[in-house]
């Protein structure tokens, strides 16, 4: 049994209490949500927080709702809820695609959306999903709240825009008409981190793509959206040539490294192949061709 270093434990009943605790305890305190990244790191003593603030009692952070032209998801919403949500599946099937390949049921029962984004692992699936969907993140502190885009949320591997006395409370995804989305992942084994994954989302205006986005995981310091991809998709008509062209742009705009999950060359190839596939499915879904 791997055992963590000593730490103090506090349990917050609500968001206000959680933020107050965080402000009082300072930078050596960490929120613990599902704990499926933090606890293993603590057991390996790669993370040694002095305080854990347990936010599993913050009931106001568990929700998926439609409000003001957005889907709003509470930061403590667990993977399982994301997987099973019909509302999400209807608007953003990419969530269900991704959740089906995230870890295993035990992890999905506990792990949360907010925890996944705050872990900021470059290989993390939901970060790629939120990047693809151009989500924004609501960050609260005692002095109020601010909203940052996914692009600004991740500032480096395992680093986010959330300050020491702040808390990620909500993720907002804009609802736009005539959209489709999909997620493709290659892993060495079920439940493993992505070797590479690619999310794609498109919104149509008639027969042409009004807007399109691609988010990649495990090919750089953070999950990234790729501006040249969006430019190439804007106003384009779907075709195999387009998917190939966009796949090549995706491959050209990533910087993977050799590691045990695969060679950089393979990952670059996957960035192309998976982008093509995700885009193809996203377009099909936007056209009502696939459930």
């Amino acid at each position: 049994m791997q055992v963590p270093a000593p730490f103090e434990y506090e349990r917050a009943n609500n968001v206000a209490e959680a933020i107050a605790l965080r402000e009082r305890l300072g930078p050596e305190a960490r929120f613990i949500a599902g704990g499926h990244s933090l606890l293993p790191m603590m057991k390996l003593r790669l993370a040694n927080p002095e305080y854990l603030i347990d936010i599993n009692d913050c009931e106001e952070l568990f929700y998926i709702s439609e409000d003001g032209g957005e889907i709003r998801i509470g930061a403590m919403t667990r993977h399982r809820e994301l997987l099973e949500s019909e509302l999400l599946a209807e608007h953003f099937p990419i969530f269900r695609d991704a959740e089906e390949v995230i870890a295993d049921p035990v992890v999905r029962n506990r792990g949360t959306l907010g925890g996944s984004l705050c872990q900021a692992d470059p290989s993390e699936d939901l970060s790629a999903v939120c990047t693809t969907l151009d989500a924004s993140c609501v960050i609260k502190s005692t002095s109020g709240e601010r909203v940052v885009s996914m692009h600004d949320f991740h500032v480096g591997p395992y680093e986010t825009a959330v300050g020491d006395a702040e808390m990620l409370t909500e993720i907002r995804i804009p609802l736009k008409a005539n959209g489709g989305s999909a997620y493709e992942k290659v892993e060495r084994r079920a439940g493993d981190w992505a070797v590479v994954s690619s999310g794609a989302a498109v919104w149509f205006d008639g027969d042409t793509i009004a807007e399109g986005r691609v988010g990649l995981a495990a090919v750089g310091p953070n999950t990234t959206s790729i501006d040249p991809v969006s430019e190439a998709l804007r106003g384009a008509t779907p075709s195999e040539d387009l998917y190939q062209q966009v796949g090549e742009i995706a491959a050209a705009n990533c910087s993977p490294q050799d590691d045990q999950r695969g060679s950089a060359a393979y990952k670059t190839h996957l960035a192309m192949e998976l982008t093509k596939r995700a885009l193809r499915r996203a377009v099909a879904r936007a056209n009502g061709q696939e459930a």
Binding site: V186, R188, V195, R261, G262, S263, A265, Y266, K267, H269
Partner: peptide, 13 residues
């Protein structure tokens, strides 16, 4: 024979 090794093999590498 991970996916990466299989792919490298297919490339002749």
């Amino acid at each position: 024979l991970t996916p990466s090794r299989v792919w490298e093999t297919m490339q002749g590498n």
